[in-house]
Nucleic acid binder design. Sequence first.
DNA 1: CGGTCGATTGACTGACCAGTCAATCATTCG
DNA 2: CGAATGATTGACTGGTCAGTCAATCGACCG
Lengths: 198, 198
Amino acid sequence: MARASVEAERKEQILAAACEVVSEIGFKSLRIADVAKRAGTSTGTVHYYFDTKRDLMHAAFDWNFEQSMGRRREILESDAAPRQRLRDFVESYLPEGDATIAAWHVWAELWVEALHDPDLQELNERVYGEWRRAVAAIIRDGQDAGEFRDGDAVIFANGLIGMIDGLSLQVLLGSRSMTADRMRAVCEQVLEWFFLTP
Amino acid sequence: MARASVEAERKEQILAAACEVVSEIGFKSLRIADVAKRAGTSTGTVHYYFDTKRDLMHAAFDWNFEQSMGRRREILESDAAPRQRLRDFVESYLPEGDATIAAWHVWAELWVEALHDPDLQELNERVYGEWRRAVAAIIRDGQDAGEFRDGDAVIFANGLIGMIDGLSLQVLLGSRSMTADRMRAVCEQVLEWFFLTP
DNA sequence: CGGTCGATTGACTGACCAGTCAATCATTCG
DNA sequence: CGAATGATTGACTGGTCAGTCAATCGACCG
């Protein structure tokens, strides 16, 4: 059964292609034919692995998240000081560099699609939960170490993540008043207030 | 030329209908026929006033913003204390109540559409600029009155607005962990840190 | 070698919908 | 009244595309 690997490999190709296309032209404009072309295959093959466009996109959104999380595993599992870990985490989400920007684009498309799709809301909930837990854990570590301000870690985490999402959107929109550098400055300022300077 | 008023009135009907439909089913699923039906007219009439779907949606996004701003004029121009004005402003953006939620939906659709449409990016830039100026002005008032923490008012404004955007998205997505009430709590906490308690 | 079956292809179809247009209606004005 | 012009209608068209399918390929095995 050497062919079992073909399925996984081909699916991965197609999902990566789907994410690239979504990031470049948006979900609304995406055609199965675009994905097939990008994946170097035919529309028939795309449909062989994913019954409907909706199935394909759900899988692609899921895959996009797994990839993003994978890229950050190192930071989250690092044993650096809480301050550094939180700084690294925030830095890694700044919409800079092709991979990060593309992942943000896909993520933004998911949000809007999810407004009218309970299954995607579920995916968002799961993913957002992972973020929140990861950030809250760092914050609790920092509080235990006396490095961070006291207060409800979950509220801090929600505020920080929300801010990152909102600012990233503006950066992605090419705002002249909110560039990645300016976003970095805002985030650093917020972290500064949050860190206790003994 | 009594008929000049017809144009404005009909356009308004159509734009309002377009926003309702976008908010209910999303831009991607919106059909001109849906808008026509909602406005109580025909597809022909919609096309009589708006050449293309794109024209219609741009005008609708614009209209949605004007309406939102209109609903907040009272707060922004109030002569209440800066603390109260900032609280009222934040409160008015919580995704609660049909009108506010619908406006947020439309706004979210604009964001994603704008990722691939420079004209809409321009609209976002204009609108976001107005927000930022309004909030920064309140913050400066508060700082001058010695009620708010010192620091760059623009950075504060950007951070606060970004956070509101990001949190609102999660609320709109029906997140169990981010309800309007929880968002209110996060915002209040942030404002609390920001206000000086003499 | 020839049979089996997973994988791949792309032409095709049926549904959908933005935008057009010829016809009709309504208001104004000479 | 009866033209002229603005407003409205909805049937229709042309193009688009998701999903289907019959044909083909090619790896593996007996």
